[in-house]
């Protein structure tokens, strides 16, 4: 969007325009038109960053680690320990999944802070917007989590045990237990989506009201702290749901 057009927009219009998910390009395959949104493109970028960093970090690991390797080992050990403490003897199997979700969400939530040439009232050449402002992204994560919960429950309790769990502790709990499987992913998705979108909107408002000095300070909370916090909350709740399912 040109600078002249943006000048004529109201703050609310600019915010609405900023948070809108746009189609970057369309793929025609199998007779379908697959619209690739900017959040999907950003997902690929985040994936590429994570894969490249992971490959670089684990390429030449030494028996006596340097600082970087020590930090990596500490993080991986922390994730495995966290999974084992919460999910107990099956925890190790879920550590990679939980760690991947956490790494992705942290990167996705924090990456808008690295918008180049932004801040101090100057309009950036392009902006990196949070992926999690798109409900489809957060819903996808929540769906994967709840499917993991269901599959784990069937795997460790058997099909009979899975269905019996719906009438426990008492048969009249059946509707509530069924609803739980809808409410949990919905709450996971909406919590992440709402928090990240809210933070992003607040940042846009702050930039609109006071483009100098304030945005970097407020951004420390909304871009870094809140992004990290929401990733932790999402990962922790996913861990709790899995642990409850298989205990």
């Amino acid at each position: 969007m040109s600078e002249a057009v943006r000048e004529t927009m109201t703050v609310s219009e600019r915010i609405t325009e900023s948070i809108a998910v746009k189609t970057v390009f369309t793929i025609h395959a199998f007779g379908l038109e697959i619209a690739i949104s900017d959040t999907v493109v950003m997902t690929w970028i985040v994936m590429a960053i994570l894969i490249a960093l992971s490959a670089a970090a684990t390429r030449r690991m030494k028996m006596v680690p340097g600082r970087g390797q020590a930090a990596l080992e500490a993080f991986v050990t922390f994730v495995y320990d966290f999974a084992e403490e919460n999910i107990h003897h099956h925890g190790r199997k879920y550590a990679a999944f939980l760690g991947t979700v956490f790494l992705f969400l942290v990167t996705a939530n924090v990456i808008p802070a690295f918008t180049p040439d932004g801040g101090f009232g100057f309009e950036p050449h392009f902006t990196i917007k949070p992926l999690t402002r798109d409900i489809n992204v957060t819903a996808a994560f929540a769906a994967v989590t709840i499917v993991t919960v269901l599959v784990s429950k069937i795997r460790y309790k058997g099909v009979g045990g899975f269905f019996r769990s719906f009438v426990q502790p008492m048969p009249f709990m059946l509707p509530f237990n069924i609803m739980e499987y809808a409410i949990r992913p919905t709450s996971l998705a909406l919590r992440l989506f709402g928090n990240m979108l809210g933070g992003y909107i607040i940042m846009l408002l702050v930039e609109a009201v006071m483009p100098l000095v304030l945005p970097p300070v407020v951004g420390l909370y909304f871009d870094f702290f809140d992004g990290l916090l929401q990733a932790v909350v999402f990962t922790y709740l996913s861990t709790v749901f899995i642990a409850e399912a298989i205990e």
Partner: peptide, 28 residues
Amino acid sequence: FTVTFFITIANLFVLYWILRKVLWDRVA
């Protein structure tokens, strides 16, 4: 609700599979 939902699920599986090989299993 768009196709982004399904693409993100696929992306997450791909990322999980690659990071498992490149990061988690390797470091563990």
